[in-house]
Simulated assay, not measured.
Amino acid sequence: MRHLPSEELIHRIQHSETDYMQDRMKAIEGRPGNPEGVEIEQFGQALCLYSRTMPWLSFNTVKGIKSEDSIHLDAIIDFYKSRDRKFQFEIVPAMVNQDLLSSLAARGFYQSAFHNSMYMNPQELKDMPDAGIVIKTIDKDEFEAYARIHCLGTGLPDQGIPSVALNNRVLHSRPGWSFYMAYAGEQPAAAGVMYMNHSNASLTFAATLPEFRRQGLQQQLLRRRIWDAKQAGCSLVVGQCAFLSQSHRNMETVGMKLGYVRTTWTEREA
């Protein structure tokens, strides 16, 4: 059964996105001594994620904020300012009203980016992954190879490979998480990650080494993950991508549709 656009569907997509990121951060926080300095705070419906050692906005973000959370804006801003950290608000259509948006603007925040949230019912997927492309789930001792694809495929420096390996290895045996590698010959060439919880599956990450792009690896990684979600009985698969990116095209090709375009709000530079 195809999902039709509705406020209920929007909330379900948003919950899926928040759910996987919260679980990821909890796993990293649970490493001995919490070396990445992860903190997770809740203000009303707004989930605030922070890392002392990972300054990227995806690890320092406010998710799930709703109109009624306007009363918590100053507390949220203070949470990050007291830690001297730049952060972002993720704003989802149908979850906020004009009052919250004007309150953000009054506090020096502006809409700085757009991002797609895509979805489909995996039970609609009819095509299995192409048997000509080898895709395997990752064993615990393969996270250095995974981290290499993660870093080089997203433009991060080689120095980040050990940290990325550690912060993803903690997810290997954690319920709901699956890591996949696609091969070009015998060479690990692309990777994808999925998190399943209840009847929802989130396609949380994907990357391809630059020299192996445009070979259909990501489309097959999408099909494999969606197929596995179908076999697990999920009724919703969610993924994120930049508008009109290759990831957007790949997701449309395999049958995913646009759920909504969320906006990112960041503070103006002084």
Rank of each mutant, 00 (worst) to 15 (best):
A75C: 08
Y110M: 11
P129G: 02
Y119H: 05
G176Q: 05
D74K: 15
R174N: 06
G160Q: 10
T137L: 11
G176K: 08
L73D: 07
L152A: 08
P93I: 13
F79C: 07
S163T: 13
E186D: 07
N167V: 08
D74N: 13
L101T: 07
A75Y: 07
P129S: 06
Y146Q: 02
A105F: 14
D141L: 10
P162W: 01
L73P: 02
L166M: 11
L152M: 06
M128N: 13
F109G: 03
P157H: 02
N116D: 12
G185I: 07
D158A: 04
D99H: 15
E144S: 11
L171T: 04
A106P: 07
A106R: 11
V92W: 07
M120L: 12
D69G: 09
A190S: 04
A105N: 15
P157S: 00
E68G: 09
P93H: 10
V92C: 03
P93K: 10
N168T: 03
I76D: 00
N121W: 03
I161Y: 03
I149F: 11
Y110E: 09
Y110K: 15
V170I: 06
K81Y: 15
I77D: 01
K81H: 15
H72F: 15
A131E: 10
K66C: 11
D130A: 09
D139E: 11
L171E: 01
N97C: 07
Q123S: 07
Y80K: 00
S82N: 14
T137C: 08
S103F: 14
P129E: 06
Y110S: 08
A182D: 01
F114T: 12
Q88Y: 09
A147R: 00
L100A: 05
S178Q: 09
S82F: 12
D74E: 13
Y80E: 00
R85P: 06
D130Y: 12
H72Q: 10
L125E: 01
N121H: 06
I76R: 07
R169T: 10
E144A: 11
G132D: 05
I65E: 02
F143W: 00
A131I: 13
H72V: 12
P157Y: 10
G185W: 04
W177P: 02
I91D: 06
V134A: 12
V134Y: 13
H150T: 00
K81I: 14
I71C: 13
I77H: 09
R148E: 00
F114H: 14
E144T: 14
C151V: 01
I135M: 02
L104P: 04
S103W: 12
D74I: 11
I133F: 05
A105Q: 13
H172K: 10
D74W: 14
L171M: 04
V170G: 05
S117I: 07
G108D: 05
F179R: 01
N116W: 10
M128W: 15
A94D: 06
A182N: 01
W177T: 06
A189H: 04
I91V: 15
A191Q: 13
H172V: 11
P129I: 07
I65P: 03
Q159F: 11
A75G: 02
A113C: 14
D78L: 14
D99M: 14
A191E: 12
D84I: 13
V92N: 01
A190L: 05
A131F: 12
G155I: 02
